[in-house]
Nucleic acid binder design. Structure first.
Lengths: 214, 214
DNA sequence: GATTAATTTAAACGGGTGTTTAAATTGAGA
DNA sequence: TCTCAATTTAAACACCCGTTTAAATTAATC
């Protein structure tokens, strides 16, 4: 081993910030390496390709978030009383905010990365997430389904993706929305405040009775 | 005047399809002009730049959708009985589906373009939409606010953006989601079916009572 | 301290991008 | 039919991209 051992970390730190801000394909390796103050070629040396760098950036968060989120859900679900949807979604707040301790602004960076990934790259990231963290996702889906048993599985599939869209879009444009909210309503929300705003919205939508027609 | 007069139209038709499928920055002018079977330089000749082409593509839909949507809302709002949120959102279905008559698959193309625009380019498209169609947007916001008077304006601001995120993300990944739904649940939904699924979700979320704490 | 493997570096490669230029072509009005 | 403006075309421009190469440098091992 030789050289600065933190070159990989410097790249990851610079990359995640830029990826979250401007998206994956809008962020060049040259911009990343100049912000990280490392050589351009070191990305390909340490990660192989840009695609693998993207996966590594996301994995660093998913490896922290997924296990703790799943265990929070399990703890809730095994409790005697049935948890409400609000409780289940709220159980994700702590694991999400834990990411702020990993890195400054980690929570919103993670959610923005997730959204960018889902929208930009149709294929490889979705595959990467479901194959690496599918078990934890199942835990979550089962908990939600159990607490809203009146929703058929197919309908629940759609509603959970509506939910993903809600949170992911909100976080992707959180900065812009916060600016508008501040100037129009004098509101100043941090990431946690926005999450707490969105949870009742999502919980109500997921649980609303299915109407056969109009 | 000389040459094929429909060159502009051929460019717009090819561009909107590709933009909706792969996003704006992932779609090169060379791909657009080859699909449209026109010369590369004709884009800059007719539209000035790629940015202005993007705006022209969106304007062609917004010019049809916005006035009819606003008039549907107004018609509903002036009726004696207060319209429900479900009715207000449902009033947008007809204007949305009208876009299918403008062009095949027009509805989903429009919604996907809207989503791409909001997520990809933080600045110029949002500005373009609010300055050109702000009056119609106000009509919509006022109708929603009137039918959910228990939601304070600032909270409504956030919830309407949650709603935008829900619909836009759903449509951006509608094709992929439909594939999964078909293979996992044997469901086959068209654009209208998805819209009818998402409306109750959004209406419930917008109207859910504000909880001071947890 | 010499050897060797890991890492960093500068430079180039091959290719794709939006845009511009200037010449060729087209079609309507005089 | 001639003229002239609108349009189309092929080519080039200047720039950015991810990746690869080979040499220089660094740090650990013997």
């Amino acid at each position: 081993m030789a050289g600065r051992t933190d070159t990989k970390t410097r790249i990851l730190d610079a990359a995640e910030k830029l990826f979250a801000e401007r998206g994956f394909s809008e962020t060049s390796l040259r911009l990343i390496t100049s912000k990280a103050e490392v050589n351009l070629a070191s990305v390909n040396y340490h990660f192989g390709s840009k695609k693998e760098l993207i996966r590594a950036v996301l994995a660093r968060y998913l490896d922290v978030f997924m296990p703790t989120a799943a265990s929070e859900i399990k703890r809730l679900h095994l409790a005697p009383e049935h948890a409400s949807l609000n409780e289940i979604f709220s159980a994700l707040i702590k694991p999400l905010l834990e990411l702020n301790k990993v890195r400054n602004g980690g929570t919103i960076i993670f959610l923005q990365l997730l959204g960018r990934g889902y929208i930009e790259s149709q294929g490889h990231l979705r595959w990467f997430i479901t194959t690496h963290y599918g078990q934890h996702l199942t835990t979550f889906v089962q908990a939600v389904s159990a607490s809203a048993p009146h929703i058929p599985p197919a309908e629940m599939f759609w509603r959970l993706h509506f939910t993903l869209g809600t949170i992911v879009f909100t976080m992707a444009s959180a900065d812009a929305l916060n600016e508008i909210a501040a100037s129009d309503y004098g509101e100043h929300n941090n990431t946690e405040a926005i999450i707490r705003k969105v949870i009742p919205y999502m919980a109500a939508g997921v649980a609303v009775p299915v109407t056969s027609n109009e």
